[in-house]
């Protein structure tokens, strides 16, 4: 019997993600992939999985899975309180799950996205080289649904050498993100204003982009009504629409956009941004 998990409850949103699609941007296919790359990688590394093995990305907890066969699992990212048949299970550590046991995730007190990796990875057919769900284009598997059975694959590379890793949980409170000047930095009256405001993570944020509320960033007077010909975006790019409220592009952002990019958040800090809860304060620091 192939080991598998049966989805009892997917919670608000659970997606299959890996390192994403590379090399198709020019035909409009974005990268997608795990939003918090560091947490995604950690789980697979602890399990001895091959690079790019598919995991589950659980947004705001709520996932309940029943094991079919014996599994070795690792939870990383947002510390959603986890239980195995009602007993607490650790994060950032290897967890042995026996046939029929139920793994459930509560709501994380800090952070947003928890990764569920399994030894061997989830066996999901790749589309254009990746098993990732792209919520923008609809490529890849649909969000997990109750009753679904996901088989576990055999994509291992080595035996696990560590039982647990000491990592800091995502922060609650104000998160500071490092940002480098973007291509249209010079469209703004005072780019420093981006770093002098404490922004609030909007509840309208998703994998396409993190929307921020606060004091609008103003454009230069002569750029106020200027139209920018659409140009390509990257993960971490901060677009500023005419209203002045920034949008930080995440993994499923459109490949191109028509709003000027004031800055680009460093890759490590995009991982941190991917863990922002709605309402959480954010500051930027120019690098």
């Amino acid at each position: 019997m192939t080991p598998a998990v049966e989805v009892l409850d997917p919670g608000p949103l659970t997606l299959v993600e890996d390192l994403g699609r590379v090399g198709h941007l020019a035909v409009g296919v974005g990268r997608a992939g795990a939003a918090d790359v560091g947490s995604y990688l950690l789980g697979n590394r602890l399990l001895g999985n091959a690079t790019g093995t598919p995991s589950l990305e659980v947004t705001f907890g709520g996932l309940r899975l029943r094991a079919v066969g014996e599994l070795l699992v690792c939870l990383t990212g947002a510390p959603a309180p986890a239980e195995l048949d009602g007993r607490a299970a650790p994060h950032n550590a290897l967890v042995r799950v026996r046939d029929g046991q139920v793994l459930s995730l509560g709501m994380p007190s800090a952070g947003l996205r928890t990764y569920v990796a399994v030894r061997g990875g989830f066996d999901v057919p790749p589309v254009l080289g990746s098993a990732s769900s792209d919520t923008m284009s609809g490529l890849g598997p649909a969000p997990l649904a109750a009753g679904q059975v996901l088989e576990v694959g055999t994509r291992t590379e080595s035996f696990p050498v560590l039982d647990a890793a000491g990592v800091a949980d995502p922060r609650s409170g104000t998160v500071v993100l490092d940002v480098t000047p973007g291509p249209r930095h010079d469209w703004f009256a005072d780019p420093a204003a981006l770093a002098s405001t404490t922004w609030t993570t909007s509840s309208r944020s998703d994998r396409r982009g993190i929307r921020l509320d606060g004091t609008p960033v103003e454009r230069l007077l002569d750029r106020r009504d200027a139209e920018l010909a659409s140009e390509a975006l990257v993960r971490g790019a901060i677009q500023v629409p005419p209203g002045g409220l920034p949008v930080l592009c995440l993994n499923d952002s459109p490949v191109t956009g028509g709003y000027p990019v004031i800055g680009v958040v460093t890759a490590a800090c995009v991982d941190r941004a991917a863990q922002l809860q709605p309402g959480q304060p954010v500051r930027f620091a120019w690098r």
Binding site: V22, G23, H24, L25, A26, P183, A229, S230, E231, A232, V234, V255, T256
Partner: peptide, 12 residues
């Protein structure tokens, strides 16, 4: 280089 992304006035 993984990607070249042409647009109206720019190439990423």
């Amino acid at each position: 280089v993984d990607d070249l992304v042409p647009a109206a006035r720019t190439l990423l």
